[in-house]
Design a binder for these strands. Sequence first.
DNA 1: TTTTTTACTTATTAGTAAGTAAGTATTATA
DNA 2: TATAATACTTACTTACTAATAAGTAAAAAA
Lengths: 190, 190
Amino acid sequence: MSAKTTDTKQEILSIARNLMKKVGYNAFSYSDISKQLNIKNAAVHYHYPTKEDLLADIVNTYIEDYKKLESGLSSSAMKAIDKISVFADRYAHLIEIQSICIIGSVASDFYTLPEAVKAKVVLLTNLVLGMVANVLEKGRANGELFFEEDARTKALLIMTNLAAGVQLARITGKKDFERIRTALLKQLKQ
Amino acid sequence: MSAKTTDTKQEILSIARNLMKKVGYNAFSYSDISKQLNIKNAAVHYHYPTKEDLLADIVNTYIEDYKKLESGLSSSAMKAIDKISVFADRYAHLIEIQSICIIGSVASDFYTLPEAVKAKVVLLTNLVLGMVANVLEKGRANGELFFEEDARTKALLIMTNLAAGVQLARITGKKDFERIRTALLKQLKQ
DNA sequence: TTTTTTACTTATTAGTAAGTAAGTATTATA
DNA sequence: TATAATACTTACTTACTAATAAGTAAAAAA
């Protein structure tokens, strides 16, 4: 495989990931990608015959990203609260780049997705939820974190606060996200 | 004004509201509406010349709805916890009709909206947040509800839990929404 | 009763979408 | 060196989008 193929395919993927987070699946086209790369529309189709193929690969890269993050976090000596804080930082960053989280983006179009992609999205979502739940559970066991719910429920509460917080920040400004972030971390420290 | 005009226009609006919540602004077309009503595409344009006009009216109806809900709630003898519970029920209902909340729907497309609509969305969002914050504040003053954050922050936490909970339920099922709802109400009762 | 307004339909336009078939350089392989 | 695969471009098709102009039947207003 030549270097150029990989480069273009990777760039298509990178641009598509950003578009997914910024505008969502239904709101970007192959020409949005080809124009940014100064190639033709058909060249994108060469690498990803259909938009569904592209979406499947996008979701795959997020699954890989989160697997790496998970193994990084589980082997890290970082305090549980700092791990959650790092997680919250990822969402804060999304606001800066005018994006929303990939799960929220996909949720909007969920019913129009092919079954193969849906299954991957379910996998991704449970991966993220499981990762957060794990950090929470260990943190509570260590006496670092305080919460009354079971770990999955608390993970759900935190993830929904962050994901919708990013969406809301588009409307009412990022100050509201900061209120959410601060309250969240304070709650966990009791 | 004749009866028929109002009927068709109201039906267009009603169908468009449902489509907004189900698939979002970018994913429905005038023909989705005209087909449901057995009228022609141009008839929809007669009532709403542009899609932006339609969107503006959709957001207006939600503003009116929430104003009514607010005045209903503020004059109601219902307990604060029940008011929040009713609010949560509205979100649970969205899952049944395969929809997400209007604010979440609009947030996805926020950057592509005309300024006039953006302003209305900001108004709507602050209306809902203010309403919830009000119920929370009064409930706390009455000794019915317990929370440490300021009322707007707690309203943000609850709204993000519910809004993203509905989105998440599309992916992982409505059981996760029920976990969120239950945890939320339990927290408020201390 | 004439005129005007309302609520459409018919027919069309300009633009964009995803997707494909066929051709062409360049690079790698046999 | 001939062959085959790679990474495209050119050119096109089909389908749909929002939007508009022009015409029409029915109802309301003058």
